[in-house]
């Protein structure tokens, strides 16, 4: 429990540092938001009035404080280009990207773990070379490319979904998830291949450990050895990898959203970068950073639940 408390504290500290750096970086590169917002209508008087209104004359740290509190109160400033509150802008898009990321992560879990076990058990079969080659191929498939293929095959050829038209959750919840499934598959495929390969190699590694011989000497069959002993040991390093995967899946989702016309964070992020709409960009940066740190924290906590050796003093790395 002490370990968990320390991890959560570390998460908070990391987030404070990351958000401050993001805030600092964007206040340095963005120039004067007031001028940017007024554009061609900018006169010195109008700029000065808007600066006062936006609180830009206050010390940087005070501005940062107000901004960070905005993550809890919902007041994150106004977008330059959309002229609407950043929080409502992101609030519409974020759930879509999160749903897509979680769906592809779920796919990775339910497909990769059984496949990895199977692949390890069949490592001596004649088809093993073919499987390895296939695995390499899937690993090399970039999500946007798979996305285009899937759109062509299932969208245009088979009409399983309508490309370019993404259903709204509140209107067609079933259709929403059905349409989300295709981009999720595109994101998941290379990660599934990587996880299968890693799990296979950790299982084969663990199979050569002395404790396996002990387990056999007690009368375990292959299944008993695998599920009672080897799998837990083999999963321990894979969990850290899955945490990374969960962190990276969101980046994959943002790219693939473009291919499938999913109105998620991806489009908003790209548009905002193009428009130099920094208030939007910096909030998205902090949200993505939070997702990555959160994924790793969960991974660490799970690893230490599985492997008691990591509980020693809280940091065995």
């Amino acid at each position: 429990m002490k370990y968990a408390a320390r991890k959560i504290l570390m998460l908070l500290v990391t987030m404070v540092i990351v958000s401050f750096l993001a805030f600092l970086a964007f206040s340095l590169i963005s120039g004067d938001p007031a001028t940017a917002m007024l554009g061609t209508e900018a006169t010195p008087e109008k700029v000065a009035a808007l600066r006062e209104e936006l609180g830009l004359n206050r010390p940087l740290l005070a501005q940062y404080g107000t901004w960070v509190l905005g993550f809890f109160t919902g007041n994150l400033g106004t977008s330059y280009s959309y002229r609407m509150p950043v929080s409502s802008l992101i609030g519409q898009k974020l759930p879509l990207t999160l749903a897509l990321s979680l769906l592809s992560f779920l796919l990775i879990l339910v497909v990769a773990v059984p496949l990895g076990i199977r692949s390890a058990r069949q490592s001596e079969s004649r088809l093993d070379g073919v499987h390895t080659a296939l695995n390499q191929l899937f690993m090399a498939l970039p999500p946007f490319f798979t996305g285009i293929l899937l759109t062509w095959l299932f969208g245009i050829l088979l009409h399983w979904f309508t490309p370019g038209k993404f259903p709204i959750f509140s209107e067609h919840p079933g259709l929403f998830f059905w349409n989300l499934l295709f981009p999720a598959i595109a994101v998941a495929i290379p990660r599934i291949a990587m996880t299968v390969r890693m799990l296979r190699s950790t299982i084969l590694h663990e199979m050569n450990q002395d404790y396996v011989r002990t387990a056999i000497s007690r009368g375990n069959d292959r299944v008993g050895v695998l599920y009672r002993h080897v799998l837990k040991n083999a999963m321990a390093p894979v969990i850290a990898f899955l945490a990374q995967t969960m962190a990276e899946v969101i980046a994959g989702s943002i790219v693939v959203e473009q291919v499938f016309a999913v109105p998620g964070l991806g489009r908003l992020l790209l548009a905002s970068i193009g428009n130099r709409d920094w208030p939007v960009v910096e909030v998205i940066v902090v949200i993505l950073a939070f997702w990555v740190v959160l994924a790793n924290t969960i991974g660490d906590l799970l690893s230490q639940r599985i492997d008691p050796r990591l509980r020693l003093g809280g940091d065995a790395r």
């Binding site: 404790y211 056999i216 000497s217 009368g219 002993h229 837990k232 040991n233």
Partner: peptide, 24 residues
């Protein structure tokens, strides 16, 4: 063989640390 292993024949190995499952 599995019916005999453990039940009729017990084995103790040289390195107890590696002979035991570290996560059990």
């Amino acid at each position: 063989l599995r019916k005999m292993q453990g039940k009729e024949i017990g084995v103790v190995f040289q390195e107890p640390m590696s002979a035991m499952d570290p996560l059990m």
